[in-house]
Every structure is written in C-alpha cells, then in structure tokens.
Design a protein around this nucleic acid. Structure first.
Lengths: 136, 136
DNA sequence: GTCGATTTGTTCGTATGTATG
DNA sequence: GCATACATACGAACAAATCGA
C-alpha cells in the first residue's frame, strides 16, 4: 500500500495504519527498530511532521517506544501474570497520571488497573503486565 | 514552574507535566478550556510544535479533548456502570487499535477492557465507562 | 577520549483546510 | 463575510543524544 496525499484520511494516520499493520503481522518484530524518520519520509514521500505524528500515534497506543538519538522500537509486552480478583473487589482501568507513570516507569500508551479491595485498599497495576481473573 | 529548554527532558513533556499538574490540582477545572496554542507558546516561550505535542500527549492520556476550531477542554469522566466479572472470566486492559477507537467512538486516551469469558467469547468495553466487580 | 555519523528533539516559516462564533 | 482557532502538511535549520570507529 502506498499513501494518498489527496485522501480524506490524514497522511499521518495512513502511515500509522501502515506501520501498525506491519507490526501486527509480525513484519516488524518486537524489539526491532522502526525505520528512522529520514527513511520513512523518503520511502513514503511524506514530510517529517507526518512521520513524527504517525510515530507519536503508535507510541500513544503502546505499540512503540522512542529513544532520543537512537530510534523507535517495537514494544514487546512482557508476560502477563495472572492476578486473581478477590471477592468483593472492583477494578477500573485508566491512563496513569504523570506521577504514576514516572514512579512506575511506564512507557507511553500503557494503562493502569486500579484495584479496590473490599476493605478499601487500593492497588495500582501496570495493565500490560497483568491479566485479571475470576476463578470458576 | 517554568520550562527549561536545556533540560534533558523534552520541552513538550515539561509543558505537558505542567499542564497535567494544573489539571490534577483542579487549577484547571473539568469542562474548562486550556489556554489557546498561541497563548501557550507566548506564555511559556516555546514553539508551536512543542505546544501541539504537549496537548496531544494530554489527549492521549485522556485528560483533555480537543474540539477543532474551538479549543481544548478538560475531559470529565462519565459515570461508570458496574460490570460483574463472571466466574472463569479473565480481563486485560490495553489501548484500543485505530479501528476499535473509530468503531466504538472512543476519545483519545481511553483504554479498553478485553473480557474473555470461560467459553472463549471476547467482549471489548470502553474502560472509562465501566467498573469491573467480583461480588463478595 | 575524540570525532563523526545517525537519529530524534525543537523551532520557525509558510500554506491550506475546516469548524466555530 | 470575517475573525479566531485548531488540523494537516511540507521544508529548512540547528540542538542534543547515542553509538561506534
């Protein structure tokens, strides 16, 4: 697929869709680097701003992680450990606050799970590390 | 706090941190508008791209919603309806794909909950609308 | 340790389109 | 129609971080 500058969908969204597909199909593997901004601008014939917005979009989706002066990398989600939801507990999912993201060293685009146990205790978990379960 | 162009943390991240704090402390109230891009560039002495990326970051965190031709507004989270997790079910939280966000009409920065029931059925829920519970 | 190549961060200028009031 | 404000897009330039020779 190529990019159509005259489409009603923004160029940067088209590029993000293209890269997302390459990630989801495994054409770009977890841990490997995205092509540099310069390469992406050349190969797709778009401006650098479109490239940067496309990468920012993928970052906000938790698909890639960008390191300044180095590159953008496909995030690999760690094994999800199973966490049992105790009786009487409740959970909400949301994006972390700035403090939480720094304290928990979360990458961009990683939600948190706020687990409230029946006694009022609250626990905040990185959403990409856990799978909540209710045993049968 | 002011912004340090020579800091190792990107200017747009510093600005986002600054605005995020104003939101979290209630200095900027839900429903109210952020200062315009022009005001933010002037008042903080940063470039337009920095302002736009900062706002985009807050948007990706679900803190603000931008209305084209009008401004950016502090998001207010809707009521959460309680959803009971059936026995044998499991849940993961993640950011939605582009398709999902369009299909479910999710604002940016809203995670989804992927609920898998014991028979293999999968349900995707907007995370800002639900609170998962396991009854006592 | 220094240098240079690569890559992302930041700013500015410019332009067009779209939505609101 | 007009003014304001955000959205998209390209080009150019320099700064800063990283890495390897």
């Amino acid at each position: 697929m190529t990019i159509d500058p005259h489409s009603h969908t923004p160029v940067y969204v088209q590029l993000a869709n293209l890269l997302r597909e390459q990630i989801e199909t495994g054409e770009l593997r977890p841990g490997s680097a995205l092509p540099s901004e310069a390469r992406l601008t050349q190969e797709h014939g778009v401006g650098r701003e479109a490239v940067r917005m496309a990468v920012a979009l993928l970052r906000s989706e938790g698909l890639v992680k960008t390191v300044r002066g180095h590159g953008s990398y496909i995030r690999q989600t760690p094994e999800r450990r199973q966490v049992e939801l105790v009786p009487g507990a409740s959970v909400v999912a949301r994006m972390p606050s700035g403090k939480e993201r720094r304290a928990m060293q979360l990458d961009e685009g990683v939600p948190v799970l706020e687990v409230r146990d029946p006694r009022g205790g609250v626990e905040v978990l990185a959403a990409d590390e856990v799978e909540l379960t209710r045993p049968a």
